[in-house]
């Protein structure tokens, strides 16, 4: 546990130099997205009275989805280029491993660090949502850990992936990953429109993807719309993904750093 804290502490020291800009963007991004997409596109949508589940306004439908997606994007980014840089460029982990800390401490420390970052992102997002009068239930407070879990569940497998790449090829792989995995998930996981609008086959595929479960969980909590135990399925999916990703990251980090 203390090993984990040391790794978090190290990232925190680095982060202290840049936190102002980052906190600023934590509030700015959701505000801009909710204004442009929620209100801008929302004005085009609402006139039609097209049925969104629970007959909510488009802004209310969109906001929780964006919260989950923002956590996915931040977590994926934090676990890709910066981690690769620490492995290959700065050799930070080699230096850490020369101390009593082990590979497990590094992996758990990086995950805990991402969780901490996401808590600030999700917290800021939730405040912005409240300013737009989106939340419908006290369970909105539970949406913050749910969104953090969504992000961390993405972080673990990305860490595993980052451990195996060189700087140049890794950077290119990350570009490809963002374009072919993260962007499609962002667009087709029910953030912008209910997946019921997708063709049946893609609907089934969406059920298999992690962001869908994160979005469904967060949206249900923010809008207070869970009527059944379905949330357990969403939660379970994310926990399993985190566990599998963690084991993979541990394995890959061992192979890389003990090579």
């Amino acid at each position: 546990m203390t090993g984990l804290l040391r790794v978090v502490q190290r990232n925190l020291i680095v982060y202290r130099r840049v936190w102002r800009g980052s906190l600023f963007s934590s509030f700015l991004q959701p505000t801009m997205y909710l204004l442009a997409m929620g209100l801008g596109i929302g004005a085009l949508v609402d006139r039609t009275a097209a049925a969104l589940p629970g007959d909510v306004a488009f802004l209310d439908f969109l906001a929780p989805g964006l919260l989950a997606a923002a956590c996915m994007q931040t977590a994926t980014f934090e676990s890709s280029w910066p981690v690769l840089g620490k492995i290959r460029w700065d050799r930070t982990y080699d230096a850490i491993l020369a101390t009593p800390l082990g590979v497990g401490d590094i992996v758990r420390g990086e995950l805990a660090w991402v969780a901490l970052r996401l808590t600030t992102v999700a917290g800021a997002f939730t405040i912005v949502m409240a300013l737009f009068d989106v939340p419908r239930s006290w369970t909105t407070l539970l949406a913050i850990p749910a969104a953090v879990l969504t992000g961390v569940a993405f972080s673990a497998p990305v860490l595993a992936f980052a451990a195996r790449r060189s700087v140049v090829s890794g950077s290119n792989s990350f570009n490809t990953m963002f374009r072919f995995v993260i962007t499609p998930l962002f667009l087709f996981s029910g953030v912008f429109f209910p997946i019921e609008r997708l063709p049946a086959l893609l609907q089934a595929a969406a059920w298999g993807t992690p962001l869908f479960h994160g979005v469904a969980l967060v949206r249900g909590l923010v809008l207070g719309s869970f009527e059944s135990w379905i949330w357990l399925v969403h939660l379970g999916y994310l926990l399993v993904m985190l566990a599998v990703g963690y084991v993979a990251a541990l394995w890959m980090f061992r192979r890389r750093l003990h090579a």
Partner: peptide, 17 residues
């Protein structure tokens, strides 16, 4: 992807601009 997701997916909720 944006065209499919926003233009056609979300666009299904928008009658016309």
């Amino acid at each position: 992807f944006y065209l499919l997701g926003i233009g056609l997916g979300l666009g299904g909720l928008v009658p016309d601009v």
